[in-house]
């Protein structure tokens, strides 16, 4: 039997979302950039560009390259830093009711901790998402997200200083992502989001040089979706906290696959570059699908593909 208006809302810990579709960090600026093209109020949540304690210039160009159905980037986490985020970017959200999630990154556990503490004072910020794909400069530059112990430690430090939901964004550049997921769950994370970009490269055969000045970059876009879906499936099996699916989601069908695999919500990333209204259209498409299939709520869909 058809359902007239299915329930689109989901909860990520204590964070209540009107629908399960968010914009992924690094693909939606600080929200304002998209305001003339997108109805920001329709989005489940907005996750802004990753913030560090101090501003970062980012990598030298060439920073991006296009690959088959994909985008390679080595932006180098360029961002305005916490102070300018507060003074220049945050006020825009006074007029926006959509939950604001701030993505954070750092070189040391202490940096993450300080970011969490400072952001905790800003009531407007509904949750934080912790990017643990950065190198820990005090541990020989090994990425926090590739070592269960470091991932646990940084998660724990952030959770101690932030009293609202903490989402930890996982790196796919590991042997067993569910191991890292369990470590951050133990560390107190309220949810995990995955996947971040996949380490990759491209070479320019005219100049005979790597296309990116940084040589390696992160691959995103439709090309990585099947990998992301597999990792979401594995992670959903291993943890009891909500899993947020990310990776090449460009259409309602893509988003639905992630929900059926066990994700409680999704993030739209690279697709924002190609179609700034992708997230809005995905929300509408999920709703139409639910009506057609007779799902009364998002909850009914989550992990459906896992049930025999």
């Amino acid at each position: 039997m058809a359902v007239e208006s299915p329930k689109m809302n989901v909860d990520i810990g204590s964070l209540r979302l009107s629908n399960p579709v968010m914009t992924a960090s690094g693909t939606f600026g600080y929200g304002e950039e998209f305001s003339s093209l997108v109805n920001l109020h329709r989005l489940g949540a907005i996750i802004v560009k990753g913030i560090s304690l101090l501003p970062r210039q980012g990598n030298p160009p060439q920073r991006i390259a296009e690959t088959a159905c994909g985008l390679l980037n080595a932006i180098g986490l360029a961002n305005v830093g916490l102070e300018r985020f507060f003074s220049e970017k945050l006020p825009f959200f006074d007029a926006i009711e959509t939950p604001l999630i701030v993505n954070i990154l750092g070189d040391t556990v202490e940096e993450y901790q300080e970011l969490a503490a400072r952001l905790n004072d800003e009531e407007r910020i509904a949750a934080i998402e912790v990017n643990i794909s950065c190198p820990n400069v005090k541990q020989g530059g090994v990425a926090f997200g590739t070592d269960p112990e470091m991932a646990h430690k940084v998660t724990h430090a952030v959770c101690q200083h932030f009293n609202r939901p903490v989402i930890v964004k996982l790196s796919p550049n590991v042997t067993d992502i569910s191991l890292i997921a369990r470590a951050v769950e133990d560390g107190g994370a309220d949810a995990v989001s995955l996947i971040n970009t996949i380490l990759a490269m491209a070479i320019d055969i005219e100049s005979c040089r790597p296309k990116l000045a940084n040589v390696f970059g992160g691959l995103s876009g439709p090309a990585i979706k099947p990998v992301a879906l597999r990792m979401v499936w594995q992670t959903a099996e291993s943890v009891s906290i909500p899993v947020i699916g990310i990776g090449g989601i460009s259409s309602p069908e893509d988003a639905i696959e992630f929900l059926l695999a066990g994700a409680k919500a999704v993030q739209v990333g690279t697709a924002n570059f190609i179609n700034p209204r992708a997230a809005e259209e995905i929300i509408q498409g999920i709703e139409s699908y639910m009506v057609k299939k007779g799902f009364a709520s998002i909850e009914e869909m989550i992990g459906r593909a896992r049930k025999s």
Binding site: G26, T27, F28, G29, E33, F34, L37, K49, G58, N59, P60, P61, Q62, R63, I64, A65, E66, L71, N73, I75, A78, T270, N272, F273, P276
Partner: peptide
């Protein structure tokens, strides 16, 4: 002219020193 992914100052791919 540079490569750019979005045109919206979101991707930050079109950096010039």
């Amino acid at each position: 002219e540079t490569m750019m992914a979005c045109g919206l100052a979101a991707c930050l791919g079109c950096a010039v020193m």
